[in-house]
Design a protein around this nucleic acid. Structure first.
Lengths: 184, 184
DNA sequence: TTCGCCATGTAACTAGTTACATGATTCC
DNA sequence: GGAATCATGTAACTAGTTACATGGCGAA
């Protein structure tokens, strides 16, 4: 599906899977709507640029994984509404069966900690505090969402929030003990 | 430093910073040695392909951040030994002052959890178990390293291990409760 | 004799990014 | 009057990836 002539059905990219998956779960959407939907759902762990979304959608149509409908509007710009096809659903399901591509998480933050000895003494502390604040912010946000939607929301989405929460709490604890050490 | 004609000293990439940082911390190395050093140190959170290392090193020399010496060997292939320069050290230090580029961690694993409702019932369980095992493996490895080198090693390296450990433990706990829920 | 280590790279590709462009409508 | 929202894209670039190529040495 890389090009129109290619035959071998390679695997979806994560971005393709995300968009098809959202179309499957939440119904038809325009590129613009998908961007907003991504930002408020999978955006916490997968946030493609909007240009990437607009680039991917026509590829999905070409591959037969989605359909595109032109919708004329009088008060707003016209738009393209996408819908997932049966083949598209199958493609997501196949993608979901695959083990995630390990690809050791790239974390420039940890690189800065590792090389901390080469930096000014307080740079390290600043990074640790910033990370702590960011984790605290994420934790608050996730808890707020959980409180707001209770048990009514999607179970799998809730699982990812709990994952994020656990990670955030681990970061906060780590940052606290490190900060204490640095002060001594 | 992107091209030889460019003047504006842009910031290092994370890979450039990693290599310069390792040269600064651990002394001269060949590309081949750097690859091994990367794998056993920053490789847990930043692991460039070896071709990327070989691509980056000449750029660092061109930018004046490192020097390159040809070393002839009789029993083995000749090699290029790189050393960081004063300008290179400064470049790393500058890089370390910058806040890490947020860039919400891309986690295809969580994408698969989020879309879990579209997969076969046991695919979700498989992913959760695999993640748990991987975290358990990482935890064991990090603890083994800590036990082996005790307090003798680099403090900043130890900080990154503790970070990894905290994350791994959070993952294990999360996976356990999720697994219990899925069984019910 | 075969396998792994040493050692460096080229070529082709990929999955993204940022900056720029356009333009009507609605809300403050 | 100005900003945000709606809506879609192009162009140029970037920071990587995998597959391929080469070849001698030492150990089992």
């Amino acid at each position: 599906m890389r090009t129109s002539t290619e035959r071998t059905k390679t695997t979806l990219t994560a971005t393709e899977a995300a968009l098809l998956g959202l179309l499957a779960l939440r119904g038809e959407r325009s590129g613009y709507d998908l961007k907003k939907l991504v930002d408020s759902s999978v955006g916490y762990f997968w946030r493609p640029a909007k240009t990437q979304i607009y680039a991917v959608l026509p590829r999905l149509v070409e591959a037969g994984y989605a359909t595109r409908e032109e919708v004329s509007q009088s008060d707003r710009p016209d738009k393209h509404v996408y819908r997932v096809t049966a083949a598209g659903r199958q493609a997501v399901t196949d993608w979901l069966e695959e083990p995630p591509s390990e690809s050791g998480d790239r974390t420039p933050f940890l690189l800065r900690i590792f090389l901390g000895g080469l930096a000014s003494p307080d740079a390290l502390g600043r990074h640790v505090r910033a990370k702590r604040e960011q984790a605290e912010w994420l934790k608050a946000e996730l808890e707020e969402i959980d409180a707001r939607i209770g048990d009514s929301g999607d179970y799998h989405a809730a699982l990812t929030r709990r994952y994020g929460l656990a990670q955030a709490e681990a970061v906060i604890e780590w940052a606290d003990t490190v900060a204490r050490e640095l002060d001594a």
